[in-house]
Amino acid sequence: MPAARPLSAAPPAPGAPNREAVAALYRAHARELWRALGRLGVQPAAVEDALHELFIVVQRRLPEFEHRAAIRTWLYAIAVRIARKFRDRARRHSFEPPAEDWPSRDRGPDQALLDAEALRMLDALLAELDEDKREVFVLHEVEELSAPQIAAILEVNVNTVYSRLREAKRAFARAHARRRLLGRDVR
């Protein structure tokens, strides 16, 4: 049994170098993770909490993480798991009303509304996918991660990613067509 690292040596003064690293990660990745959490099915009103939880995990586990090359993959892996947790939670408390819209304040109000509407539509379509397909679809199409990266994130093999992606695209197109027929497209 290899001995665990000596306890006394392990914790650096809590939060000292770690905080810098976390801050850098936050600056670099918080936006895309925010977006990913939303697309992965976290209710808009809960994204803030989800992101918070995500970075708490990052704070805690960053010291173990030495391979910065794959840090983005690692962050997404955490995001996917947080999103799963939030989806479960939302299912259990499904009496909560779906959240209000959340137009961004950065753009003109019209554009923001349009964007928010399109996003809501996208999320509605994504919600029709099975969860495993949704994850693959979002990571690939929206977050533009490669299949091997996704495979590592989801801990499935690459072929599974490809087949889920194929099915997801098909299902998404079907869902989209159905919406249009029902006249609920935003256009």
């Binding site: 936006r31 977006r35 961004s104 304040r105 996003l119 533009e144 197109a173």
Partner: peptide
């Protein structure tokens, strides 16, 4: 249409205040 939706999602800006 689908591509448009997805492109929109890639651009989706987070709420800076919330961040």
């Amino acid at each position: 249409d689908i591509q448009r939706l997805i492109r929109g999602a890639r651009r989706a800006a987070p709420d800076e205040q919330a961040l």
